[in-house]
Nucleic acid binder design. Structure first.
Lengths: 187, 187
DNA sequence: AAAATTGAACAGACAAGTCTGTCTTTAATT
DNA sequence: AATTAAAGACAGACTTGTCTGTTCAATTTT
C-alpha cells in the first residue's frame, strides 16, 4: 500500500474508534489491530496519539463540511437553506453510529491545558459559524453585518444544542425543537 | 471521623477531581491521596469507581439545583425569572474552576452501554426541564400545558448550549447570545 | 538499492481493585 | 470504673492488566 494511503487508512480507522468509544478509551493497540498494521508503522506516520487525534478531528470536520454544504446547497433558496441544517441533523442522528459532536466529546476528554487540540476545535467551530453567517447573508440578510453575525451565532447555538441533546436524551426531539426554535427567530 | 462524614469527604474530593480533570483521567489513587484516606477505606464506602461517579453526579446536581432555585427565586417575578437562569450561568462561568456541564462531560467519557450512568444523567436533565416548565407556568404561561412544555424545552436547549459553548470557546458570548435568544422567544 | 513495513520484545508508568494486619474510637458488658 | 468487643480507618504491598511509545532484525515494496 502506498505511503499516503496507509496514513489515510490509519486516520479512518482511528476516527471510527475515537468517535464510537471516545479518545481515552481507545488504545493504540486497538487502532493497529483494527487497521491491520504494525505499531512501528503507525508511529512512522504519526509522532503521537495526540497527532492522530488532530488528524481525526480534521478528517471528521472535512467530511462534515463537505456533506453539509452539499445538503444545504440542494435545499430551496431562502430560509429553507437554514432549516436544512436541521434536516441534515435528522439524517445524521438516524445513522446507527451517531454519537453526537466529536468536538464536544473530545474536549471533554483532554486535559484543559492541551491548547493544540482545543485551538483546533475552536477553529472548526468558528468556521462553522462563518458558514452559517454566509447562509444568513445569502438567504435572510438583516440590516447590518453585525446583525447577521448575531443571528448566525443564535442559529449556531441552537444547532449545537440540537446535536448534543439528541445524543444525551437518545431522542430526536431536541432537533425538532431546535428547528422550531430556529423558525421562530427567522422573521 | 464519623462514617457518614468520611463518605461525604470522599464524594466532595472525587467531585472536584472528576469535574476538573474528567472521569477517566482521575485515578482512584489520586482520589485517596487528595482525600488523605486509605484505599481500603474508599472501597469500604463505595463498591466501585462507577459508584463514586454516580455519587459525584448526584452531589453536583443537588448543589446546582439548590443554588439555581435560590438564585432564580431572588429574581423579580415575571420573565426575569427565566432570564435569571442566564445570569446564574454568567456567575458560574466566572468561577475559576468552571468546566462546563458535568453531565455532558461525563457522558462523553463513559461507554455507550453504561446505562446506569446514562439514565442518571437523563433523569437529571428531565428534572431540569421540569423546573424550567414550572418557571414558565408561573411567569409567562402559554395557552396550553403542551405549549408550556415546548417553551420550556426551547429555553432548556438554549441554556444547554450556553453552558457548553461558553466552555468550548472559553468566552461568555454564548451566554449573552443565549439570553438574547431567550428574550426574543418570550413574547 | 532505498524506503517502508513487519512482528515481537521491551520499558516504564499507571489503572482498578484486593488483601493483610495494625491502630483508634466508641459502646457494651462485667 | 475496668474490661472487652466491634467497627471503622489506617498504610501500603500486591495482583492483574492496560497504556503509550521505542527498538531492532528480518522482510517486503517501490
Amino acid at each position: 500500500m502506498k505511503h499516503s494511503l496507509v496514513r489515510q487508512h490509519i486516520i479512518e480507522t482511528a476516527s471510527d474508534l475515537f468517535y464510537q468509544k471516545g479518545y481515552n478509551r481507545t488504545g493504540i493497540n486497538e487502532i493497529i489491530k483494527e487497521a491491520g498494521i504494525a505499531k512501528a508503522t503507525l508511529y512512522n506516520h504519526f509522532a503521537s496519539k495526540e497527532d492522530i487525534c488532530l488528524a481525526y478531528l480534521r478528517f471528521r470536520n472535512d467530511l462534515f463540511t463537505k456533506n453539509i454544504r452539499t445538503f444545504v446547497g440542494n435545499a430551496k433558496k431562502g430560509k429553507d437553506q437554514l432549516y436544512a441544517l436541521f434536516h441534515f441533523l435528522i439524517e445524521f442522528f438516524a445513522e446507527k453510529d451517531f454519537n453526537g459532536c466529536w468536538c464536544v466529546n473530545t474536549i471533554a476528554e483532554i486535559p484543559r491545558e492541551n491548547e493544540k487540540i482545543r485551538k483546533e476545535i475552536q477553529k472548526q467551530k468558528e468556521e462553522f459559524i462563518e458558514f452559517i453567517k454566509e447562509l444568513v447573508e445569502k438567504n435572510c440578510s438583516q440590516n447590518t453585518t453585525s446583525e447577521n453575525e448575531i443571528l448566525a451565532k443564535k442559529v449556531y447555538l441552537i444547532y449545537e444544542s440540537s446535536i448534543s441533546e439528541s445524543k444525551l436524551h437518545q431522542n430526536q426531539w431536541p432537533i425538532a425543537t431546535g428547528l422550531s426554535l430556529c423558525k421562530s427567530i427567522l422573521n
